[in-house]
């Protein structure tokens, strides 16, 4: 039902003086560490394929240096690829000329930055209105739009202040308002919340989800924090050394990690709180069999709470008032242990 709005196909990016010559080596399968050691070139991205769906939040996650910023900057061509294609709304943006590219950046893409990147000499209102004024739109209307979005992100009354007079969290709200003012379909957020304190970060995540509920933008969100990724992602892409290790629905990745790297990554997560009932239920559509009802979007914590210690309890799982499956507490208990540890125990077990 949801079509993909941005497609990244076979994308390679190599940093260095002779990147074109390196591309064949990268395509032949050479990895980042080898290329750096043998040829002194940095393999930024290797064979990236992502379909970014309209109206979804796609989260790109990876450790520092894994190529997240490089990847997101290909979407508005702040960085040009060494090889590969990027389609936005059906157009190959690598074929755009200078003028068309400006148009794309002005109307289709907005961006929120880790270090806020506001204009220090302009007021909050002017900063928030920047996308419109860059497009040369009418001053009065720009102000009104900016004022509305500032109100929406909770910054009413701060219009006449300068960025340095605001806290980090509030500055990032200005950054968010600025991105929204541009009224673009795609919103790129490069570690937008990484510089914020945990509590403020959490409230900013809630704000994003709340806005997303109403606006249904196509958001590409970058983070190195798994909790943040799991909280907001519709589609999760995990990046390592410039390569995609796994991508898919977060719940699926959590239950079926593709390799030890991801198992390691998801090992420390509070699974009971993150995993949802519908992800581990067995699908049934039969009629009500008198079991206690549980909503599919609830997390396992609630299921455990409701079971109140009964290890063999069974729930009827409903979604939108319809029976969709059955949840057995034995499945719940199994799901709480990461796959890695499960297989390790069976091997070593007596």
């Amino acid at each position: 039902m949801t079509e993909s709005f941005v497609s990244i196909r076979n994308l390679y990016k190599i940093f260095g003086t002779n990147s074109m010559a390196m591309i064949s080596r990268a395509k032949a399968g050479m990895h980042k560490a080898d290329m750096l050691k043998e040829f002194g070139h940095v393999l930024g991205l290797r064979d990236i394929n992502i379909e970014i769906k309209k109206g979804e939040i796609t989260v790109i996650m990876g450790l520092s240096g894994s190529g997240k910023s490089t990847l997101i900057r290909h979407l508005n061509r702040l960085i040009d690829p060494t090889s590969g294609e990027v389609f936005v709304n059906g157009t190959d943006i690598l074929k755009l000329d200078r003028r068309q590219l400006l148009h794309l950046r002005r109307t289709q893409m907005s961006m929120v930055f880790q270090k806020f990147a506001l204009l220090p000499h302009e007021t909050v209102l002017r900063n928030a209105g920047m996308p419109c004024s860059v497009r040369g739109e009418d001053g009065k209307k720009t102000e009104e739009t900016a004022r509305n979005w500032l109100h929406r992100v909770g910054l009413s009354g701060a219009e006449a202040l300068y960025p340095h007079q605001l806290s980090g969290g509030m500055q990032q709200r200005v950054g968010l308002a600025r991105a929204l003012t541009s009224n673009s379909e795609v919103m790129l957020m490069d570690e937008a919340y990484s510089a914020l304190d945990p509590l403020i970060r959490s409230s900013m995540q809630d704000l994003l989800l709340e806005l997303q509920n109403d606006l249904q933008k196509t958001v590409v969100f970058i983070t190195h924090d798994l909790d943040e990724a799991l909280k907001i992602a519709d589609h999760l892409v995990i990046l390592k050394d410039g390569e995609i290790v796994q991508q898919g629905e977060p719940q699926y990745i959590l239950l079926n990690p593709a390799d030890p790297y991801i198992e390691d990554f998801v090992g420390d997560i509070n699974r009971a709180r993150v995993l949802r009932v519908r992800s581990i239920m067995t699908e049934v559509t039969t009629d009500d069999d008198g079991l206690e009802i549980l909503d599919g979007d609830e997390n396992l914590e609630l299921a455990i709470l409701r079971a109140s210690g009964e290890a063999d309890k069974t729930f009827a799982v409903h979604s939108d008032g319809m029976r969709v499956g059955t949840l057995r507490m034995t499945e719940v208990l199994k799901a709480l242990v990461p796959a890695a540890r499960r297989s390790a125990t069976t091997k070593e077990g007596p």
Binding site: L78, L102, R105, R106, F113, A117, P120, R135
Partner: peptide
Amino acid sequence: DVLEAADAFGMT
């Protein structure tokens, strides 16, 4: 960073 933001929003 500020220059990058200017580019990202399509400034000439």
